[in-house]
Simulated scan of single mutants.
Amino acid sequence: MTETTVADVMAELAALEDPRIREVNEKHGDDHGVNLGKLRAIAKRLKTQQDLARRLWDSGDSAARLLALLICRPKAFTRDELDVMLREAGTPKVHDWLVNYVVKKSPYAEELRLAWFADPDPVVASAGWALTVERVSKQPDGLDLGGLLDDIEAEMKDAPARLQWAMNHCLAQVGIEHAEFRARAIDIGERLEVLKDYPTPPNCTSPFAPIWIAEMVRRGGR
């Protein structure tokens, strides 16, 4: 891909900028105003283009980076590239898409999970916890679930927001997926009261772990 193509894509993204969308996104820490449905439509048209994806990522623009994550080949990135990308992701949406759309599909996912889980940067650590949620759900063999609950019980209450959210998700997932730990997970959630008062729209499940666990267990007939 040539720089002209990159410039064309950047111009297309700029034309989609909507101040109202930006205003909403900025309340959540994101710094772009592009409708994500329209962004996905561009990605569908462009299809997979790894070189273009790298160039868009290197622009530093959040909308361009989100598009890059949709058109890249996840397995084409090295472990070190993914580590650098996570640390420079910046905004929550770019961070989340990188973890969910790229890192989870990478052959380095488990290696990075272990490295990020113990990282002193709470934003990086939150990615380690997000990958741990995936393991809790899909590949729990080898995980110390009791140890995870110990860590959550000791650290979640005072953790920075993004790390706290990821740890809370892990707490809920342990309770949902593993009946033998369900009572303890609910007890931890009730005592710590993390996200207990989080505003939840009608017909949505509260992120407060005891309610989240009970609702998902009810739906799944567990």
Rank of each mutant, 00 (worst) to 15 (best):
N168R: 07
S62G: 08
D158I: 05
L149P: 03
E3T: 10
A154P: 06
S59G: 11
A63F: 06
A179T: 10
T2E: 12
Q50S: 01
I21Y: 02
Q173H: 10
L66W: 02
G175K: 08
A15W: 07
Y108L: 09
V6H: 02
I186V: 15
V194K: 06
E81D: 10
R55E: 11
D31S: 10
T132Q: 10
K93L: 12
M10D: 04
L82A: 06
P19Y: 06
P202M: 09
E26C: 02
D18H: 07
L36F: 09
E180S: 14
A15Y: 06
Y198L: 10
Y198Q: 12
Q173S: 14
V6A: 09
P120C: 04
L46G: 00
V84P: 04
V102E: 05
P202D: 15
R20T: 14
S106L: 02
R54L: 07
M1N: 06
A118V: 14
C72H: 09
A53N: 00
R40S: 06
P199R: 08
K38M: 11
F181C: 11
N25T: 04
A41R: 14
A7F: 05
M216F: 13
G220K: 02
R218L: 05
D96G: 06
K138H: 11
V136H: 09
D31L: 13
D58W: 03
D18W: 12
D144R: 07
K47F: 04
L192Q: 15
G128R: 08
I42D: 01
T205M: 09
V99T: 06
W97N: 13
A127M: 10
K93I: 15
W97V: 15
G221M: 03
D187K: 11
K157F: 08
A43N: 03
V174S: 01
A53F: 05
C72Q: 04
G221T: 00
I213P: 00
A159Q: 09
L39E: 07
V136F: 06
R184Q: 14
A115D: 11
L56A: 05
Y108E: 10
D96H: 12
M216T: 00
T132Y: 01
H95D: 10
M156C: 11
P122Q: 11
R55D: 04
A68D: 01
V133G: 14
C204D: 12
P199E: 08
R45M: 06
R40F: 05
V24Q: 12
A183E: 15
L56H: 02
N100P: 00
K196P: 09
K104Q: 15
A214D: 14
A179L: 12
M85I: 07
L52D: 00
L171V: 01
I213H: 00
D96P: 02
W165D: 10
V9L: 06
K105C: 00
Q173W: 02
A159W: 07
A183K: 15
E153K: 04
K38D: 14
C72I: 13
W212P: 00
T132L: 03
T48E: 11
V217D: 01
D141E: 15
L114C: 10
G60Y: 08
S206W: 01
R219L: 13
L149Y: 05
E110P: 01
E193V: 03
A63Y: 00
G33P: 03
A185G: 13
L148D: 01
T91S: 13
A109I: 07
K47M: 08
W129P: 03
G29Q: 15
I21D: 03
R45P: 00
W97H: 12
A43K: 09
